[in-house]
Every structure is written in C-alpha cells, then in structure tokens.
Nucleic acid binder design. Structure first.
Lengths: 95, 95
DNA sequence: CCGTTGATGATCAAGAACGACCTGGCCAAC
DNA sequence: GTTGGCCAGGTCGTTCTTGATCATCAACGG
C-alpha cells in the first residue's frame, strides 16, 4: 500500500477530488510526523500508538570496516498496534 | 496527540466539517490497519513504512507467576520512520 | 500512463534493548 | 463524567540497532 492507495480510497469512500484526497493524506501524515518530532506521543484507540523514546542503544557495527559504530543518541519512534489490532494479528497467520 | 487533534487539523486546514474530518481520519487509519492485517506493507515516502513480520519470539516471562509464557506465534507490525524523519529525530534532542 | 529520480530494503555482526503477561492507574473516546 | 483501552514493571530470549551498497519501487513529471 502506498500513498496513492490511501488517496484513491478517499476518492471513493469520501468522494474527494484526487488533489484533495492526496492533500488530506499528506496533511495527516505530516502532522503526525511533526507531533512526533515535537516529542509528542500519538495515541489512537483502535489503531495503535506512536511514542518517541530516547535512544538507549549503545553500539552498532559496520561490517565492511569491521568496526563498532557509536550510536550518537537521538530518539526513536515506536509504534504499538492497539489491542484489537494485535489480537487480529495473532489470529491471522501468514502463508 | 489524539484522534481528535487530527480531526481538528482537517477542520482548520482543509475546512472539513467536524464529522467529515473525523470520518476521514478513521477511514485512513482503518484502511491502513486492514492492509497490514492482510499482510500488506505500507510504504509512504517521506514519512515511514509499516511492515508485517512473522513473530519469531519464543518465550516471554510472567514475573508474578515466575513461569515462562509460550508466545504462540503471530505477527508483529514494525514501523520505520523515513530517512528525513530519522534525520530530524537525531537532530532534535529531548528536554 | 510511462519513464526517471532517488529513497527504501536487505545484509552482515555484535551488543543492548525490547516483548510477552498481569495489575493498577491514567487518560482517550463517547 | 464514565468506560475501558493503554502504559509501566520484571525476566529471559529474541530482535533491533548501526552503516554502506545495489536493486527495487514509490513519487512525480511529461
């Protein structure tokens, strides 16, 4: 699924124009991104939650150069699917 | 940030009615959820990607009962912020 | 709609962090 | 205001994380 799919969905479901649909999708995603960058958490019931957490990981590794790479801090975005979402994930299996 | 915040945003930015804004937000999120449940991956450039992966974890642990808990498989949803997103996360620090 | 641009994914390793379950508290949703 | 979903905590095992490169495909222009 790509951004275009979501836009198409709004075209059909909400009867939006293509431009409006695309803009709406981008607006929402952009807003969510900004909120996360501001350190805010996003919590949508029935869907899931995004949380920004300080990065605790210490070292990664560069195979090519065979050296450890200090992870100079920062933050990570963690997504957790909601209860219903998780339940459905368990029930359905991948083939 | 909660679902209501996103709806308010659409009211202001896109001049949607409250009901339409709320419905739009839910429609998008619901669709994304369904896509993930269908095993589809979502890839939005500039934002991030959601991928569904089979769960390989074998055991969890119940501290209270001091026993191991078999994690009977299922799938997990993994979110990865996009390049730009990640870069900004690094640059900004938490207070 | 097709082609182009360039971001995204996989990979390899090693090490640290997260995840599951359960209960209580807090807050999102109605 | 009420309901009930969501987060935290603890232990052990699994997964993630980092970086660089090539191929693939999302996004966009003609």
């Amino acid at each position: 699924m790509i951004k275009n799919d979501l836009a198409n969905l709004l075209e059909r479901k909400a009867n939006f124009s293509r431009a409006k649909a695309a803009l709406t999708v981008e607006t929402i995603l952009e807003t969510m991104k900004k909120a996360l960058l501001a350190g805010e958490k996003i919590e949508i019931r029935g869907f899931g939650s995004f949380r920004v957490m300080p990065k605790k990981t210490g070292f990664g590794r560069d195979i090519r150069r065979n050296r450890q790479i200090p992870i100079s801090g920062g933050r990570r975005v963690k997504f957790r699917p909601g209860q219903d979402f998780k339940k459905q994930l368990k029930q359905q299996s991948i083939e």
